[in-house]
C-alpha cells in the first residue's frame, strides 16, 4: 500500500485528547462543517428577516412536510443503525456489523430517493406571475400555479392546479398572452430566495449524504479485508464514519423544522 512512516497515536489514544488521530481529526472537520452550515443558516435568517412583509412564503405552503418527516425518521433510524454497527464490531460480530452498515446505507438511499421526488416535483411545477390581476377560479389572482407549461413567443399555456375542495379535478389548460406576464418560472432555485435557500441547504446536505454513502459502501465492501488485517482500525473507521453520519443527521434535525415547518 502506501509508503507512510509509522505515525504515533494512529490507533492508540493520546493522553491529552483521549482520542486517536483519526477521531480528533474528524471532530475538527465537523467543527468546520458547523461553520459551513452555520453560514447558510445565518444567510437564511438575514434574508428572511430582511424580506418585506408578505413576500416570504411559508415552508409548509410550498414544501411537502409529510415527506420530510418521513425522511427525518429515515435519518434518525440510520443514525441508530450506524452506531449499532460500531457496537457490533466492539462485540466482535463482523457479520452483524456489516448488516447494520447495509441498513444504514439503504436508509440513506431511501432518503435520497424521497429527495429526488421532492426535487423533480418542484422542477415540474410552474408559476406564472401576472402584471395585473386576472380572473381565475372565481377570484382575481396575480399568480397562477400549475403544470405542463408550454411557452411560445406570444403566449404561455399552463394547466392550472386545482384549488378548494376538489383537489383531484384538473383544470383545462389556459393560455395567457406574454404582454400580461411578468415572469414565468418553475419552483426551482430561481423562483424565490426562499427556494434558493431551500435548494442550497438541502442540496449541500444531500451531497454530504451521498459522500457518507460512498464511505459506508466502501466499508461494507472492504470490511472482511480490513477486519482481517487490523480489527482495531476497522472499529475506528466505523466510529469515525459514524461521527460524520451523526453530524449529517444533526444538520437535518435543524433543517427540517427551519425549512419545512416555519
Amino acid at each position: 500500500m502506501s509508503d507512510s512512516a509509522i505515525i504515533p497515536h494512529d490507533v492508540e489514544p493520546h493522553p491529552l485528547t483521549g482520542m486517536y488521530n483519526g477521531k480528533f481529526g474528524l471532530w475538527l472537520f465537523l467543527a468546520s462543517e458547523v461553520m459551513l452550515f452555520g453560514a447558510l443558516f445565518s444567510s437564511y435568517v438575514l434574508l428572511r428577516t430582511g424580506a418585506p412583509e408578505g413576500t416570504w412564503p411559508r415552508g409548509e405552503d410550498i414544501l411537502n412536510w409529510k415527506l420530510a418527516m418521513l425522511n427525518t425518521m429515515f435519518l434518525i433510524t440510520s443514525s441508530v443503525t450506524m452506531v449499532m454497527a460500531w457496537a457490533e464490531l466492539k462485540m466482535n460480530r463482523l457479520g452483524k456489523a456489516k448488516q447494520m452498515l447495509a441498513i444504514t446505507f439503504a436508509l440513506a438511499g431511501a432518503f435520497m430517493v424521497v429527495k429526488y421526488f421532492e426535487y423533480t416535483d418542484k422542477f415540474h411545477h410552474y408559476q406564472v406571475e401576472l402584471l395585473a390581476p386576472m380572473a381565475h377560479d372565481g377570484h382575481d389572482v396575480m399568480k397562477i400555479t400549475g403544470h405542463n407549461v408550454k411557452e411560445t413567443e406570444d403566449s404561455v399555456s399552463i394547466e392550472p392546479d386545482a384549488h378548494g375542495a376538489d383537489k383531484s379535478a384538473k383544470h383545462a389548460p389556459i393560455t395567457i398572452e406574454r404582454s400580461k406576464i411578468k415572469r414565468v418560472t418553475n419552483f426551482g432555485p430561481a423562483h424565490s430566495t426562499f427556494l434558493a435557500v431551500y435548494f442550497t441547504l438541502t442540496g449541500l446536505h444531500g451531497l454530504h449524504i451521498v459522500g457518507g454513502m460512498v464511505v459506508i459502501g466502501y466499508l461494507i465492501f472492504a470490511a472482511d479485508r480490513i477486519w482481517k488485517w487490523n480489527p482495531e482500525k476497522m472499529v475506528n473507521r466505523v466510529e469515525c464514519t459514524g461521527l460524520y453520519w451523526h453530524f449529517v443527521d444533526l444538520v437535518w434535525i435543524f433543517l427540517f423544522p427551519v425549512l419545512y415547518l416555519l
Partner: peptide, 13 residues
C-alpha cells in the same frame, strides 16, 4: 468531502 479515515500506516510488519 466525506469523513477521514484513521491513518493507514501499515508497513505490513
Amino acid at each position: 468531502m466525506s469523513g477521514a479515515h484513521a491513518t493507514d500506516s501499515h508497513a505490513g510488519h
